[in-house]
């Protein structure tokens, strides 16, 4: 099944906006993100590291050639976030009524089709996918 280009780009933009925003909150050090990374025992270094990965992924998602790598990074960070929610944070984090988990699912739902559609652009393994 071929995903139309418009849909693909919409997915890329939505995923890029969400993780781009998430990266900014980490760099700025909003109360919510400091709370989370304190809970995970990664404050502040882990916060900046994850923020940097998210920012890279968001920028890559806004190109056509690197979108597959961007999607892979986005999926990776979201899988990490999923582990965090499952093991430490729970669904409701700092009174957000599940908004973060919601955003996480949106990123996963949009990045996975991007990765699948553009998998052949992945370096090294692209030609075998």
């Amino acid at each position: 099944m071929k995903i139309p280009k418009g849909v693909l780009w919409s997915c890329q933009i939505v995923a890029a906006m969400i993780i781009g925003f998430a990266a900014v909150t980490k760099f700025v050090g909003t109360d919510g993100s400091v709370f989370i990374f304190s809970a995970l025992g990664m404050e502040p270094f882990g916060r900046y590291l994850i923020g940097a990965i998210e920012l890279t992924a968001a920028s890559m998602l806004l190109t056509s050639g690197f979108a597959a790598i961007g999607a892979l990074f986005a999926i990776g960070t979201m899988l990490g976030a999923t582990i965090a929610h499952l093991s430490y944070l729970g669904l409701d984090v700092d009174g957000d009524a599940g908004a973060r988990v919601m955003m996480l699912s949106v990123v996963l739902t949009t990045a996975v089709p991007v990765l699948i559609a553009r998998r052949q652009n992945l370096p090294l393994i692209g030609s075998t996918l």
């Binding site: 892979l72 999926i75 990490g80 582990i83």
Partner: peptide, 13 residues
């Protein structure tokens, strides 16, 4: 340490 989950995610992929 949660940092090990970088490896968890990599191995999962």
């Amino acid at each position: 340490s949660f940092y090990f989950h970088f490896l968890t995610v990599t191995l999962l992929l």
